[in-house]
Design a protein around this nucleic acid. Structure first.
Length: 580
RNA sequence: GUGCCCGUAGCUCAACUGGAUAGAGCAACGGCCUUCUAAGCCGUAGGUUACAGGUUCGAGUCCUGUCGGGCGCGCCA
């Protein structure tokens, strides 16, 4: 549609160039937009305004010249010049009806791009540390990342979803020790769980499970623990307990706790996300980067390129050469690589896997981290533009007007599962997907739970279910709907009908812009608009009681609406029920 | 202190990425069920887009400053 209009305007402007109204060398970029108001026609363009200066004419005068030079075409019935120099285009009715045939012909793929016709894209999202269940804060990243992946797929890209598992580092040792202490408690050892351990109930359960499996095999007297921590500050005491556990239990013994904690939490996360409608292609282990030597390889490459230097016994990466605020440590003075070292290797590996684009969906608290990751890719000779980091603002949770804490260690948080149980996965997804990712967001748990019916998702689904009901009733009344695709669409001449036709026509454009801008919320707003237009239409007339020709045309339009509602809901990962 | 993000109706958010008279949903008020689902429809009310300048045909959107909020600024992950 837009392409046709574009070619008409390009012809007109070429004409103006030969007439020397517009400087020949001036590059002209014609842009069309859907109008907001009906009396502005279907499309509008501002070319006359953008060309006014180079052509040294006032915009309205220029608009008249453009319109005069516009070739005749059956697509357009009327052209207006309005306001400061907008050119408004009114489409012919036939052009509006064509969308119905298209929807009938394409069905479930209407609005979607040619599959696998574009880029190969990886979307990495959630990637929460496997130290506890996902909380509602992760829910936003999950809903956003998955909707984004679906939208990019819908737009014609080939998409892989990846979860980066941070299964290395001190946090995991703390988790293992937390489980161990709960295990000791289950064995009636008199010991308190330190404040800086993981305090969630799930840790208690894991301790009890290991107590049942292994009995007293891994006991250490509480006096030894007290002795190890004596006189130490909180974090240092915790490190002392970790060393003690590793020494006393040995690598294998410690790994019993470590492995159980990691595996059961990861299983829980995987299942949780799957029930949320989010399934990954790959779960990428941070530890595998050590085992495969990729971290070592990345460091060697940086050494070879001269981007690292020694200072204070540690190995530093000169990220300031690439615009970072300060240089960063890659290998600590104790020989241990930092988390940053893992991330360098991880992102190197990611780009080497051959994606045209790698998208990271990160919580906004990681924004300071972007320059150094980009720096590392550049230093490694990779194209850092292929990495796109999208930030998702954390939702601030409220319960009873009070802010709710979200710390995993303290154990005070609302889990994603809890939210799903209360409001349902679909409603939760829709709620999250409604918000632009960088927008700060207040999440009132009481509201989300108690008034789940106010979720706009139900409004959209209801439109879908209503249409299904119409067809069910038609079948009960033995009304033949098998040939509605060939109805006389010219019957559809009311305002409601033309609004709906325009909306249906816009759907493919919405999918593309949502994909180009990484904005799933555009789909939700579009669906709400479509549902509103349909509900309104529904209330004006009884479809099944109209005379045959009109009835079939209205049913055709309804069918197309149902199809697009279904396709759109699918794109954000929400179901389209046939009845409610 | 400094860097990034944000500030739009009473509340939660949009605004086609610089376009025409800033729009929805909750909440409030008034109407509409004997008919294909009232989880719906129709209407009323609600705004100096935090504030002050600037850029241009045109600014909620871009630039500068001020105020207010969130986050970051580790040899943590």
């Amino acid at each position: 549609m837009k392409d046709q209009l574009l070619s008409l305007f390009e012809q007109a402007i070429a004409q103006l160039k030969t007439d020397k109204v517009v400087p020949v060398e001036h590059e002209v970029n014609v842009q069309f937009e859907r109008t907001r108001q009906k009396d502005h026609g279907d499309f509008a363009t501002n070319v006359a305004m953008t060309l006014a200066k180079p052509a040294r004419r006032n915009p309205r005068e220029l608009a008249e010249l453009i319109v005069a030079a516009l070739p005749q075409d059956s697509l357009i019935t009327k052209v207006d010049i309005a306001g400061p120099g907008f050119i408004n285009l009114f489409l012919a009715q036939d052009a509006r009806y064509s969308v119905l045939s298209t929807v009938f012909a394409q069905g479930d793929v209407y609005g979607l791009g040619e599959p696998n016709s574009k880029q190969k894209i990886m979307v990495e999202f959630v990637s929460a540390n496997p130290t506890g269940p996902l909380h509602v804060g992760h829910g936003r990243g999950a809903a956003y990342g998955d909707a984004l992946a679906r939208i990019l797929t819908a737009a014609g890209n080939t998409v892989e979803r990846e979860y980066y598992v941070n299964d290395a580092g001190r946090q995991m040792d703390i988790l293992a020790v937390s489980v161990w202490i709960r295990y000791l408690q289950a064995n009636d050892v008199a010991i308190e769980l330190p404040d800086n351990c993981y305090k969630g109930d799930y840790v208690v359960g894991m301790g009890q499970q290991l107590q049942q499996q292994h009995g007293a095999t891994y006991l250490v007297p509480s006096e030894q623990l007290e002795q190890a921590c004596a006189g130490l500050e909180l974090e240092e005491a915790l490190d002392a307990i970790i060393s003690l556990a590793k020494n006393q239990l040995g690598t294998e013994g410690f790994d019993v706790f470590f492995a159980l904690a990691l595996n059961s939490i990861l299983d829980d996360i995987r299942q949780d996300l799957s029930e949320f409608g989010v399934d990954y292609d790959t779960w990428f282990s941070e530890r595998s980067l050590f085992d495969s030597g990729k971290i070592q390889r990345a460091i060697e490459k940086l050494k070879a390129s001269g981007d690292v230097y020694d200072k204070d016994g540690a190995l530093w990466f000169k990220t300031t050469d690439y615009g970072d605020e300060k240089d960063r440590v890659v290998v600590r003075d104790n020989g241990q690589p930092t988390y940053f070292a893992s991330d360098i290797a991880y992102h190197m590996d990611k780009l080497e896997r051959g994606f045209d684009l790698a998208i990271n969906v990160w919580g906004s608290d990681h924004h300071g981290y972007i320059p150094r990751v980009k720096a590392s890719l550049q230093a490694l000779g990779l194209d850092s533009d292929k990495l796109k980091v999208l930030l998702v603002q954390f939702a601030v949770l409220y319960r009873g007007g009070e802010k709710v804490g979200m710390s995993t260690r303290s154990g005070e948080f609302v889990t994603l599962r809890e939210l799903r149980d209360e409001v349902g996965s679909d409603a939760a997804r829709f709620f999250y997907a409604q918000r632009k990712s960088e927008q700060h967001m207040d999440f009132d748990l009481d509201l989300a739970k108690s008034q789940s019916n106010d979720n706009p998702m139900y409004y959209v689904q209801y439109a879908h279910a209503r249409i299904c009901r119409i067809f069910d009733t038609a079948a009960e009344r033995e009304i033949d709907t098998s040939d509605i695709a060939n109805a006389n669409f010219a019957e559809l001449d009311s305002d409601h009908e033309s609004t709906l036709l325009t909306l249906l026509q816009r759907f493919p454009e919405i999918v593309q812009t949502a994909a180009n801008n990484y904005e799933p919320h555009q789909i939700t707003y579009y669906l709400r608009d479509l549902a509103t237009a349909f509900h309104s239409y529904y209330n004006t007339v009884k479809f099944l009681e109209a005379e045959t020709a009109q009835r079939n045309a209205m049913l055709a339009l309804s069918h197309a609406c149902r199809q697009v509602l279904k396709n759109g809901l699918g794109i954000i990962g929400v179901g389209a029920p046939n009845s409610m």
